[in-house]
Amino acid sequence: MNVYTFSAEMTCGSCENCVKKVLEKNQQKGVGIQSFSVDLKGKKVTVTGTISQAEITEILNKTGITMSLDGVTLLA
């Protein structure tokens, strides 16, 4: 179980909705997203789950929003 934090160039409310919708859709698909939080003001996206770094990065990149991985912490 990892916690991934990304900096995300979200510019307005609908960008935040886009990221939430994409993460929800993938969570339901069972790709290994346990929970997530999207902070528009802080331009941060945090994803917790068993999903691989490559896969979560690809999913977030597909939103067309510029994303960069800040860090990964392993949950015991």
Binding site: T11, C12, S14, C15, C18, K21, K62, G64, I65
Partner: peptide
């Protein structure tokens, strides 16, 4: 659906041709 501002429009027009 779900587009609320010009940024969304620009993002779609820029991103779709790349994917």
């Amino acid at each position: 659906g779900g587009m609320t501002c010009q940024t969304c429009v620009d993002k779609i027009e820029k991103h779709i041709p790349t994917v």
